[in-house]
Each structure stands twice: as C-alpha cells, then as structure tokens.
Amino acid sequence: MEALSYSIPISIFLGAVGLAAFFWALRGKQYEDPKGDAERILSKEWDDHPKP
C-alpha cells in the first residue's frame, strides 16, 4: 500500500505534463491547419518551423 503514496502523485504528474504539452501546442497554433500539415509532410520543401 505504500506504493500508492508515490505512484498516485507520479500518475497525476505525468497526466499534468501531457496536459501542459497540449496547452503548449494549442497556444502555438498547431491546430490551425490540420489538413495542410498532413499534406506538407509529402512536400519536399520542408521547413523546420512554421513560416510566419
């Protein structure tokens, strides 16, 4: 039962990390053009970061 005392905080922490990552992606406008992003992977004119 002692395992609970650290496994629960760990699971909640990991979940919170995922949530933070989601927020970060959302704020970074990564969901603006899902269709375009899906197609861009096929393009040879790749870019390291979104153009402004």
């Binding site: 629960i8 699971s11 979940g15 919170a16 989601f22 927020f23 959302l26 969901y31």
Partner: peptide, 20 residues
C-alpha cells in the same frame, strides 16, 4: 481554442479519475 482547452482539461481529469 477555448473549447479545445476545456476538452483537454476534461480529458486529463477523466483519465486520472478513471485510474482511481
């Protein structure tokens, strides 16, 4: 984005609570 953010929060909470 506002709704998406709420979905994210609800999804996070749902999964954690479901574990418990």
């Amino acid at each position: 984005r506002d709704i998406l953010m709420r979905i994210g929060v609800a999804g996070f909470a749902m999964m954690n609570i479901m574990l418990l």
